[in-house]
């Protein structure tokens, strides 16, 4: 299944450096329509006001965590089918299980490389 790389992608992380890294890696794999949010509330507002084909979010954010953002997205009738990839340093099994139960589409543990990001996006969007 061909992936539409012109889709809007929302990246969410409270570390500006990480947003910059992910944006540049996405650009290298030809996703050019990338928007950023630095916390869960801003992300939700952007998601509800826009048309995004993919969310890539960190977990460890305050006050709304990435897991809570995922739960909000899955509970929203309009957004619930949006593919959601968690990129996080949280690598305990309990975190992965909680994310899966909340409906995460895929899970990338930091530090990650460009190849892993490309692979997970292709898997998620290939199944979308």
């Amino acid at each position: 299944m061909a992936i539409d790389k012109s889709m809007n992608v929302l990246i969410v992380d409270d570390y500006k450096t990480m947003l910059r890294i992910i944006r540049n890696l996405l650009k290298q794999i030809e996703f050019h329509n990338v928007e950023e949010a630095t916390d869960g509330a801003e992300a939700l507002a952007k998601l509800r006001g826009g048309n995004f084909g993919l969310v890539i979010s960190d977990w460890n954010m305050q006050p709304m965590t990435g897991l809570q953002l995922l739960q909000e997205v899955r509970a929203d009738g309009k957004l619930k089918a949006t593919p959601f990839i968690m990129i996080t340093a949280e690598s305990k099994a309990e975190n992965v299980v909680a994310a899966k139960q909340a409906g995460v589409s895929n899970y990338i543990v930091k530090p990650f490389n460009a190849e892993t990001l490309r692979d997970k996006i292709e898997k998620v969007l290939g199944h979308a």
């Binding site: 570390y15 450096t17 890294i21 540049n24 890696l25 340093a89 930091k110 990650f112 490389n113």
Partner: peptide, 16 residues
Amino acid sequence: TTRIYEACSFQDITGQ
């Protein structure tokens, strides 16, 4: 440039 982007993620992890 890809390798530099990847390496720079240390700032996030070490910050945590």
